[in-house]
């Protein structure tokens, strides 16, 4: 069990321990944020850039963070927005639709050894890549990070009902993809 968020925030509010608090915050959340970004954008270098951007934003805005909200939910929200913006820009740069981009990524999984040679995982990630961006985020938060619907709702600002519907749809699509590619 690491340091409590409340303790980090308390330290961050004092000028003398601000840097120390930020260091603790990075230690605690860097991997979670990295993996959220990595699963969304796939490429390590892109995920690396994003995770740094996320923490810069956290640093700039942490003073205004309301202590009644969950710190990790707030950070996940920043990370999710950064990822969605990145994918949007990538789409504009490549002059392609997000759907096309997703299918390109899915094909990449099928043809390249990007997943450490694990064919079963390659199938799963190939299926995830075909999902629309927001559905992909919801699926990842629920499946990999095992967050509750209520927590995802706070992060993405979507109703719990809407999230459940999206998640079920995502799972069904993945299931079909797995069956069809057996």
């Amino acid at each position: 069990m690491g340091i409590a968020d409340s303790e980090i925030l308390e330290k961050f509010s004092r000028e003398s321990t601000k840097n120390e608090a930020f260091g603790l915050l990075i230690q605690k959340y860097q991997e979670k944020i990295y993996w959220l970004c990595r699963r969304m954008v796939i490429d390590h270098d892109d995920a690396d850039d994003l995770v740094q951007e996320v923490f810069i934003k956290v640093w700039k805005n942490l003073d205004g963070f309301r202590a009644d909200a969950q710190l990790y939910s707030w950070m996940y929200r920043i990370a999710s927005n950064e990822c969605l913006q990145f994918l949007k820009k990538q789409k504009q740069r490549n002059q392609t639709s997000l759907d096309d981009l997703n299918h390109q990524l899915a094909d990449q999984y099928g043809s390249l050894d990007v997943l450490n040679g694990d064919q079963i995982q390659a199938k799963l990630y190939s299926a995830i890549a075909t999902l629309p961006e927001k559905q992909k985020l919801i699926f990842q938060m629920k499946y990999f990070d095992e967050l509750k619907y209520e927590e995802i709702s706070t992060i993405l600002g979507t109703s719990v009902g809407g999230l459940k519907a999206s998640f079920h749809l995502a799972v069904k699509k993945i299931e079909e993809h797995l069956k069809n590619n057996d």
């Binding site: 260091g23 450490n116 694990d118 079963i120 799963l124 990999f144 993945i174």
Partner: peptide
């Protein structure tokens, strides 16, 4: 909901450069 998916082992298949997380904090 998804028997094929449920059968799968949940593991992280991505590779990360050696020592990446050790250096990430100082880079941030």
């Amino acid at each position: 909901l998804a028997p094929s998916l449920a059968k799968m082992e949940k593991k992280n298949p991505y590779l990360v450069p050696d020592g990446y997380f050790e250096n990430l904090q100082s880079r941030i």
